[in-house]
Nucleic acid binder design. Structure first.
Lengths: 219, 219
DNA sequence: TATTAAATTTAGATTTGTCTAAATATTCAA
DNA sequence: TTGAATATTTAGACAAATCTAAATTTAATA
């Protein structure tokens, strides 16, 4: 059975490679896993021996099928736990990630199935990230960062790109939230800040940096 | 921060010594922890260095205050998780222990507090064992094994002594459950089996061995 | 109480995951 | 395209937790 350490490596490789399909580098892994590059190299050799990854010296690493399956199950568990922590226990947005990092390593199929049932088979977690189903399949969504919208567009906020507690706390403090419907009022040319109609009367202004990290969908 | 291994040792020492206050032996620990006596000796030296236990070579081991506190917090977490798994997720009696063994090692005060709130601050877990409160205090209950009752006594079933899945599955299959009110109809001298009035019409017979493992309270 | 049996500890090794420092490969820029 | 900067790997070591086999202590019993 895979150790928690192995699971963390596999999940991190997945998250680093899922975007573009490019290989993950040793240094990217050492940074995300908060360990040294030498340790990463050691571990990659072991993971390659177990056939979880395809590793080419100096060229980086990709998951192969076994590794992908493991990663998807871990991400499923992580995101189901996050949903539970947020929806059922009312734990704040910015705290759930660290707790879910621990809970995702608990081994019990029945546990995760029952949680999934309790939550009514959610397709997205509280950050708007897709939750793989029991077979590992993900439901993607047409979405874009808010800063790529045009003035006048009607949008629904569906997620965030940046998951850092800092940013999440900031979002909690302003009148914007996941699932909310908004309209882009104006985009300021000077600094690319963006004015958002949040309801009938109120307008809120976001910096470009904030808008880049908010994911929206046209409606 | 204590490793899961250390936590398992501390909890096991607690459970072996809570009854009579006698020391736990190396061999008892090696059996419960499914490891060798040599490994136990090694670990006991380390725990003594950390001042979690009082260990006298060849004489066994007791927890000191730090160890006791750690054990009570672990038992609190274990029993709260068991209650959650049973009451909120409907996971069967005989499966919850193994899952809680993993969950009890998750480190998050807010998580356990929120679960405690969701469950309405339970004082007993699904097996009838007391749950320490946040400060570590246990609420004991006047109870005795069912085999020590006399014919005619009116009792409430409050817990089980044996937690083995085998026994729990057996209990699930007969018309007796925690919190149920029963009356002892007759005790058979020959084999000490015991006849229980489970409701107006029905009587159920338990072997002495089964009755020893069912805990009851007079009403 | 002397001897044997059982329990416990010690000695020395192993596995997993990590580290530092040194060596090697790759990349980037002149 | 060559040399410096950067990234990666190797070598050797270490800590945590475990093991087997041997030595020692305690308990049991004749």
């Amino acid at each position: 059975m895979a150790s928690q350490t192995v699971e963390n490596y596999i999940k991190t490789i997945y998250l680093l490679t899922e975007m573009d399909g490019a290989s993950a580098t040793t240094s990217a892994l050492s940074e995300k896993l908060d360990t040294t590059a030498a340790s990463v190299t050691d571990m990659l050799k072991k993971l390659a021996d177990q056939n979880l990854i395809k590793y080419i010296k100096y060229k980086g690493v990709k998951l192969n099928q076994d590794g992908k399956n493991m990663a998807l199950q871990l991400i499923r568990k992580h995101r189901i736990w996050e949903t539970f922590l947020h929806e059922k226990l009312n734990i704040s947005w910015d705290s759930i990630h660290d707790i879910a990092e621990q809970l995702e390593h608990v081994k019990s199929d029945i546990l995760i199935d029952k949680l999934d049932t309790m939550l009514n088979y959610p397709k997205y977690d509280p950050h708007g990230d897709p939750i793989p189903d029991a077979s590992g399949k993900l439901t993607y969504r047409l979405q874009k960062p808010l800063n790529q919208s045009l003035s006048g567009e009607k949008l629904r906020i569906v997620g965030v790109k940046d998951h850092k507690p800092n940013f999440l706390k900031y979002l909690d403090s302003i009148p914007l939230a996941i699932d909310q419907v908004i309209e882009v009022k104006e985009i300021i040319e000077f600094d690319h800040s963006i004015q958002i109609k949040v309801d009938q009367e109120n307008v809120w202004t976001l910096s470009e940096q904030a808008a880049e990290n908010i994911l929206v969908k046209n409606i």
